[in-house]
Computed example of a mutant assay.
Amino acid sequence: MPRRRYLIAYDIADPRRLRHVCTLMEDHGRRLQYSVFVCDLSPAELAELEAAVTRTIDLTADSIVRIDLGDTTSPATITTIGSRRRFPPTGPQIV
């Protein structure tokens, strides 16, 4: 199954929920900025992450934004203004 690259950002009101969402994001992607992650995910991994996040957040107080950057073989161009950020390499990674 092809993997797609997503930019995922979050705004979580409660510190306990924030820590839990942050842990979920660290398990699925690489931090780009404080509350912004780049994730290369298969459809199953994306569904798993979204289900876990939905179970964790308060839908009336918190928000998650997911931006599809395209297939990992030819992801969207990302431009940085100011301090440059290191983007994760494409494809599977062994940790």
Results as ranks from 00 to 15, higher is better:
31 R>P: 02
39 C>S: 13
65 V>L: 15
21 V>C: 04
86 R>F: 03
79 T>S: 09
47 A>Y: 08
78 I>H: 10
37 F>K: 00
50 E>G: 08
93 Q>N: 00
83 S>F: 07
90 T>H: 09
6 Y>K: 08
26 E>W: 09
18 L>P: 00
75 P>V: 13
38 V>D: 01
88 P>M: 12
53 V>P: 01
33 Q>R: 05
43 P>A: 12
18 L>R: 02
82 G>D: 03
76 A>L: 06
81 I>L: 15
50 E>Q: 14
84 R>L: 14
40 D>E: 15
58 D>T: 06
49 L>V: 09
68 D>Y: 11
40 D>S: 14
84 R>H: 11
4 R>Q: 13
84 R>W: 07
15 P>C: 03
18 L>H: 08
14 D>W: 01
9 A>Y: 05
13 A>H: 04
8 I>Y: 00
6 Y>R: 11
55 R>A: 15
25 M>A: 06
93 Q>W: 00
10 Y>M: 02
87 F>G: 01
83 S>I: 14
24 L>K: 00
90 T>D: 07
4 R>P: 02
9 A>M: 04
44 A>Y: 05
43 P>I: 11
40 D>H: 08
62 D>V: 11
42 S>Q: 10
24 L>W: 00
21 V>T: 07
88 P>A: 09
76 A>T: 10
64 I>T: 03
78 I>L: 15
38 V>A: 11
7 L>V: 03
29 G>T: 02
40 D>M: 04
1 M>I: 04
91 G>W: 12
25 M>W: 03
54 T>W: 13
65 V>W: 09
15 P>S: 05
28 H>T: 09
26 E>H: 12
93 Q>F: 02
64 I>P: 00
16 R>V: 10
54 T>P: 00
72 T>L: 12
44 A>T: 14
60 T>D: 15
50 E>A: 08
94 I>L: 15
24 L>D: 04
95 V>D: 05
77 T>V: 12
76 A>V: 08
36 V>N: 03
22 C>S: 15
83 S>E: 13
42 S>R: 12
71 D>V: 12
9 A>R: 04
53 V>S: 11
16 R>L: 11
66 R>N: 07
15 P>E: 08
23 T>D: 07
74 S>T: 06
43 P>G: 05
21 V>D: 04
23 T>N: 14
26 E>G: 04
12 I>K: 01
33 Q>D: 05
20 H>F: 06
15 P>W: 06
74 S>W: 11
45 E>Y: 06
38 V>K: 02
64 I>S: 02
3 R>C: 09
8 I>H: 01
35 S>C: 05
63 S>A: 15
86 R>V: 05
54 T>Y: 10
90 T>V: 10
60 T>W: 06
66 R>H: 07
51 A>Y: 10
55 R>Q: 14
39 C>D: 02
73 T>D: 07
3 R>E: 15
88 P>I: 14
70 G>M: 09
5 R>M: 15
27 D>Y: 05
79 T>C: 06
82 G>L: 10
57 I>E: 02
22 C>A: 15
61 A>C: 10
4 R>H: 13
28 H>K: 04
32 L>Q: 06
2 P>R: 12
94 I>Y: 14
35 S>H: 03
4 R>K: 15
76 A>C: 13
82 G>P: 01
50 E>V: 04
11 D>N: 06
87 F>I: 03
50 E>I: 07
13 A>M: 02
95 V>G: 09
69 L>C: 08
35 S>A: 14
42 S>G: 08
13 A>L: 06
